[in-house]
Amino acid sequence: MSTTAAEPTGAEPGDKPLVASAVNPPHTGSVATRRLGVAAIVLLALTLLFGLVLSPPEVSQRDAVRLMYLHLPSIAVTYLAFLTTAVGSALYLRKGSVYWDLVAGAAAEIGVLFCSFVLVTGSLWGKPTWGVYWQWDARLTSTTVLFVMYLGYLAVRRLELPPEVRSRRAAVLGIVSFGNVIIVHYSVKWWRGLHQGQTFGADTKMDGLMLFTVFLGLMSFLVLAAWLLIHRFRVSWLAREVEQVGLAQALAERRAETDATGLVGRSR
């Protein structure tokens, strides 16, 4: 994918992965993430190559099946990301470590991003195969609900609250939401249980090359998501640090208020 050309740049060659270097780079890259990013680019390029060129069109869906190579990996990433959010939230509540809170938030954001991919590619895929962009299909419905639910989660993360309160509320929501994913999924599936038909797995008979392409897409999206997650986490981390520097300044200003009062002098 051309997009990741904006890859991490110029981390110091000598530093170890994920460890502070002697010279701290003015960005969120490090050697490890750079390698990860290169891997993501290569894999994505391969996915493009196989998905658009090398793999054969399907019998009934023709070329529309190529959307599957984005759709399936996106689903996987979405679910994994939301799982990460839930786990991160639980660990945050348990250990009280901001680290996990930030991980949860970063994962949710990435999950929402990929969830939007799922929805768009899914409905684009649906038009040629089903004849409509939207169908009240179990998966479609539940995925949409999921999407909205995590938009809500992100909204909570953006609330104007004391950071700890906000983190705690978000963590509760992160855990509950994931449980909800399951309920929504099953209830909707039950609801539409009668005509399950038209989702991907039904018209299988994938040939080897298609299967390989799906696998390739999966790998590339996972690597990409991991890379994004690390960077997003670091951005949150930096934001927190910046806030704390601001806090030091605010403290100093607050303490300086003293002299303006005149009370101290009068009391003597």
């Binding site: 909205v148 639910m149 909204a155 909570v156 929504v184």
Partner: peptide, 18 residues
């Protein structure tokens, strides 16, 4: 919260879908 009136529906409605 000030945003309560708008936030609660956003959170609750998808959850209550089932």
């Amino acid at each position: 919260l000030r945003v309560r009136d708008t936030l609660v529906p956003l959170l609750v409605l998808p959850v209550l879908a089932p």
